[in-house]
Design a protein around this nucleic acid. Structure first.
Lengths: 241, 241
DNA sequence: GCCTAGGTCCCGTTG
DNA sequence: CAACGGGGCCTAGGC
């Protein structure tokens, strides 16, 4: 039977190698130690010797954390492969095939290593953009009295329209944002509207979002597009203290 | 003197509370245990009871990791505050002010707790978009024989132009991408070109990127914009094995 | 496999 | 402070 966790104080390099090679699929492995890190792939980077926390997950993802920020200093996404070489320093190579990328972790010392039986658990998120679209499909009058939704994720050669519908004046293209809409949202909408116009359709376009930035609103008007105020629905049983 | 790390097997809730309240600024603290997590803020979420790894960093960032993927299941960015309540379960509240968000971590059991003296270290990244712009500023002929760069990050009411310059035919707006350019890059460029056109300027626009998607290229031509092939320079001393 | 678009994006930077 | 845009973005979903 597998224990919930195991812990090794100042493990030998050979122990670390053995564990990384044989237990990586069963446990989340955390190393704490001095390390220097080289990354080469889509970009390249160097992180000088410093004590950091390194996490290896069963799916192949690897995270190297400093003492700040949410984002790891370096990382490798899932389905990466791990190889370990012994020597004066412990050398850990984490490779990914496509795109071809390598993370090279050099450790002169490992202070501790832990193995933890971490599970996945259930997870539910509320307040996404797609939930906003659903609400409008169910209650089209949230947009206007004469709005009739036709298709979600309507494919054009230049991207997917969140929700395409019609009103008495022709097509209406809607672009949804769960948070404040910015310039990018307007440009995106304009792209879809341009496409339908090029096809000779009579078409209007609108942003559906809880708010919109000032410059985005200005651009929206320049392009003769519209704004519909709508907020995502959060789970009311979760309360802010 | 502070130790490199400390480790507690099956710590009492009161110990966890004490450490989270008094050592959070000095160490990266990792909890491994059963937990249920409620999040409320920009969105809301529930993660059911499951064993997960929870990391608290000195700057206030908190990460809750499952056994998969790079992204934490739940998290809180830096400058969050931590409060702990004792009871049948350990209750950890992580709050952030703007935007107002709360993470509520309920733990019936903590298998282990560790404190690690993690440092920041130096970090250098090569191959960013801004390095590409620099290269073009130094070698404008990479774009064309008659291109003269005028201003980086040129401010318009509708966003910043990566590099604005002139050629014999008028202004040239350049939008850089360090990886393949997609539809969004074209829309972004179009927005800047539109602005200068509205001002009555004679203006061309171009994407500078290592590659461009087929549909993006099609849209680029529809909009009568141009494409210049250029790759970011990686650090050659870092080699792929 | 390519590619589009969302994300509790995070994050730095600038007005 | 608001807000724009980059990112080794990551990741899911379509074709």
């Amino acid at each position: 039977m597998m224990e919930k966790y195991k812990f090794f104080d100042l493990p030998e390099f050979s122990t670390v190698k053995d564990i990384l090679e044989n237990e990586r699929k069963n446990y989340v492995i955390t190393l704490f130690g001095l390390c220097k890190i080289l990354y080469a792939g889509r970009a390249s980077s160097i992180a000088t010797y410093s004590s950091r926390l390194i996490t290896f997950k069963p799916d192949g993802s690897v995270l190297v954390h400093s003492n700040k920020k949410l984002k790891p200093v370096n990382w490798q996404p899932s389905s990466s492969e791990v190889k370990v070489e012994l020597g004066d320093e412990l050398k850990i190579y984490v490779e990914r095939k496509r795109p071809k990328e390598v993370l090279e972790i050099l450790m002169p010392i490992v202070y501790y290593l832990s193995l933890s039986k971490v599970d996945e658990g259930e997870f539910h998120l509320f307040g996404s953009e797609s939930e906003m679209v659903e609400e409008v499909v169910k209650n089209p009058e949230l947009i206007s009295r004469d709005f009739i939704p036709l298709e979600r994720e309507y494919q054009t050669p230049f991207g997917k329209i969140d929700l395409l519908g019609v009103t008495s004046t022709g097509y209406l293209v809607l672009e949804f944002k769960r948070a404040q809409a910015g310039l990018e949202a307007v440009s995106q909408l304009k792209r879809y509207v341009d496409y339908l116009s090029w096809k000779g359709e009579k078409v209007r376009g609108g942003i559906v979002a809880p708010s919109i930035s000032k410059s985005a609103l200005k651009l929206l008007k320049k392009y003769e597009l519209e704004y519909f105020q709508l907020s995502p629905r959060l789970l009311s049983t979760i309360r802010l203290k």
